[in-house]
Design a protein around this nucleic acid. Structure first.
Length: 688
DNA sequence: TATCCGTCG
């Protein structure tokens, strides 16, 4: 392969020498690919061709007359790379740093590098980037890209963000929890600092909401303070097709549509959206059967899955160039909506459903549910086609159904667990959380449930004020339950082990689950080396200790079917937490002997709101609310003898309610360690 | 008995 003409991948961390990797991006967690149709032009020529450059004067006019500018435009218009440069060219950097936030690490790093390159600067000097485990900026940095989590930390340190002259919030239309939080905080800052300019990059449907949110017009000040500017930028059109009648099985319809496109349409790759891994596997199996029956070979139609739990190597397969006669078919989850951009897609198939996290306030748990997608999601998916030539989009629902879909997906703020958000805002001195001005106010019952949880954990007192422990919990980059575990471990004498366990809980998965028959059998046998009757968290501790004892090698992970890239991150996270706890909070680390009782008591002392007991029916019941829950098949307790009492980390809803990350406990511990939460009577009543 | 959408510090 000729490395000059090859597009560059960011961050393969398998040492895959086919791809060009550089050191800064090596740490990034996810796959990213930036497709650039003007690759052959010089950087400056490419830059001047971008649609956004035609709007320079409009942008500058808006910014000098209004404090907040809402910028609408399709992706590909060059907003993210050009706006910072335009502001720099006009000298905005003289009054303070130009800050740009991104929802994801890879996009922050990619964009920062691109802008440095276009400006002919050394990356990390005038143009820099900040995200967890990667700080590439210095005191001369004028354009600073960062993740949203980082600017949140900066608000902690400097509540008015006085170093900055401009803040650009990119991808605000995604309406992530943290984006909405920052938008609320920025509104307070903007009122106090009239010199601060704010640019919000958004899609059309949210523009008016954002404009009104930042319009401080009043009787005493009759002038608008915010304005919308729309920049056109699309180069190709997509033709949209709907079904005449609703379909019964969208997985089957996806397969049928793929075959129809393959037989009737000219060359061009296909991207199909389904809701989860299981559907994707089923679709691929059906498609292969179909291909066999109709004598279509893998050389003609190359099928591949794309979802987050694939190994990195398998994720990269979707980027391989295929021969001219091969049509690629990628069947993906919503990872392909934003996080991964696959070049050269001509056909998109959209099942019309999406899997989302919903917070059930009455149970205080998160649930994953499949729901109809929104029009905004359908448009976002459609936009993945038509980037190199006109595309076609097949929606597996009727046009009437499309009209009935909600305009946008409910912002995460309205459907997420708010305990971390509330803790953070409390730490920033916002006393009345219920009256905080969010772009979309969360449901009051969700807030109250989170406040109740924070009270139970001792993060806030009965007046709703942050306690000393609460302040530490707010500062730690962990969920309140995990922070609480660490705080409890000081007294109980097992902080070393709890730190390892908590670090392990910060990554998505530890074990790899190969799909092929023999691999799956090997993986299951290797997991047995670590599994213990005390539950998943103690099992994770065993894995961590074995990984470290064996030199943290890739070979060890290969042998025992562990996710090397995740375990490497665990080590990084553990180091960061240990440093924070010792330097910032003067915590002394201690370790317990061979017995796991102390460790399990410590887990129980933090996870007590999520306790369940074995009901005589053979399933579990949550102590709170008496809801039936089942042990998740990935838990090490799934095949073990079922313990009488457990605490768990999370609930997933598929065919039933399943609990994961389980630890066995003794029922008296709940009364001892959380007597403020569990009255003796209620525990006795629930006992068998 | 039958298996997780995607992010972040």
């Amino acid at each position: 392969m000729n490395s000059e003409s090859r597009l560059k991948f960011l961050k393969p961390d398998d040492s895959d020498d086919v791809f060009a990797v550089d050191r800064e991006t090596q740490n990034a967690e996810t796959t990213s690919f930036v497709f650039n149709p003007n690759r052959n032009l010089s950087l400056i020529a490419q830059r001047d061709k971008l649609p956004i450059r035609k709007f320079v004067n409009d942008i500058l006019y808006c910014l000098s007359n209004y404090q907040t500018l809402i910028l609408c435009g399709e992706c590909g218009s060059g907003k993210s790379t050009q706006i910072p440069q335009i502001l720099y060219e006009k000298g905005y950097h003289a009054k303070g740093i130009i800050g740009i936030t991104q929802p994801r690490r890879v996009s922050a790093i990619t964009l920062a590098k691109r802008v440095a390159e276009e400006m002919g600067q050394v990356f990390g000097e005038e143009v820099g980037v900040a995200c967890r485990f990667l700080n590439k900026f210095n005191e001369d940095t004028k354009i600073k890209f960062m993740t949203e989590g980082i600017i949140m930390r900066e608000i902690f340190a400097n509540p008015l963000l006085s170093e900055y002259s401009v803040i650009i919030i990119d991808e605000a239309h995604e309406r992530n929890l943290i984006t909405d939080c920052i938008l609320g905080l920025l509104k307070k800052i903007a009122k106090k600092r009239e010199s601060l300019k704010i640019i919000i990059s958004s899609a059309t449907m949210d523009a008016k909401l954002f404009r009104d949110f930042y319009n401080f017009r009043s009787k005493s000040n009759p002038k608008d303070t915010s304005i919308i500017l729309t920049v056109e930028g699309r180069m190709y059109e997509n033709e949209i097709f709907y079904l005449n009648e609703p379909c019964a099985d969208y997985v089957q319809s996806t397969v049928d549509t793929i075959m129809k496109i393959h037989h009737k349409e000219p060359a061009g790759d296909i991207l199909a959206f389904l809701t989860g891994q299981e559907e994707i596997t089923r679709a691929i199996r059906m498609l292969r059967e179909h291909m066999e029956l109709t004598n279509v070979t893998e050389d003609e139609l190359k099928v591949m899955p794309m979802h987050a739990s694939l190994t990195h190597h398998d994720q990269l397969r979707v980027f391989f160039h295929t021969s001219r006669n091969t049509r690629k078919v990628i069947i993906a989850t919503n990872i392909a909506e934003t996080s991964v951009t696959i070049p050269g897609i001509v056909f998109v198939i959209d099942c019309g459903f999406i899997k989302l996290n919903w917070y059930m306030a009455d149970l205080q748990i998160n649930m994953l549910v499949v729901t109809p997608a929104s029009q905004a999601t359908a448009r976002q998916r459609a936009g993945r086609a038509g980037r190199i030539k006109n595309g076609k989009v097949y929606r597996l629902f009727t046009q009437e159904e499309y009209q009935k879909l909600p305009n946008i997906t409910a912002p995460e703020m309205r459907r997420a667990d708010l305990s971390t958000t509330i803790l953070t805002l409390k730490a920033l001195g916002i006393d009345n959380i219920l009256r905080f001005d969010f772009p979309s106010a969360p449901p009051a019952k969700n807030m109250l449930a989170s406040i109740e949880l924070l009270y139970a954990l001792g993060a806030i007192d009965s007046e709703g004020n942050l306690t000393n422990d609460g302040l530490i919990m707010a500062e730690l980059p962990l969920s309140p339950i995990h922070s609480k575990m660490l705080l409890e471990s000081r007294e109980l004498g097992c902080s070393d082990e709890i730190l390892s366990i908590v670090s392990m809980m910060q990554v998505q998965q530890i074990f790899s689950y190969p799909k092929s028959g023999q691999g799956a059998i090997t993986a299951r046998r290797q997991r047995r080396n670590f599994e213990v009757a005390e539950g998943d968290l103690i099992t994770y501790l065993n894995v961590y200790q074995a990984f470290v004892a064996n030199g943290c090698t890739k070979e060890f992970c290969g042998q025992f079917c562990l996710m090397y890239r995740h375990l490497k991150r665990v080590v990084e996270i553990r180091n960061q937490l240990e440093l924070m706890l010792t330097k910032q909070f003067k915590m002394k680390f201690n370790s317990t002997a061979a017995s796991t009782t102390i460790i399990r008591r410590c887990i129980c002392a933090a996870a007590f709101p999520f306790a369940a007991y074995l009901h005589h029916s053979g399933t579990y019941r949550m102590v709170r609310g008496d809801t039936e829950v089942n042990i998740h098949p990935t838990s090490c307790l799934y095949t073990e003898k079922q313990p009488s009492w457990i605490v768990f980390g999370e609930v997933v809803h598929t065919t039933k309610l399943f609990v994961r990350d389980i630890t066995t406990i003794e029922s008296p511990w709940l009364l001892e360690l959380a007597q403020h939460y569990y009255h003796k009577t209620s525990v006795r009543n629930n006992q068998i």
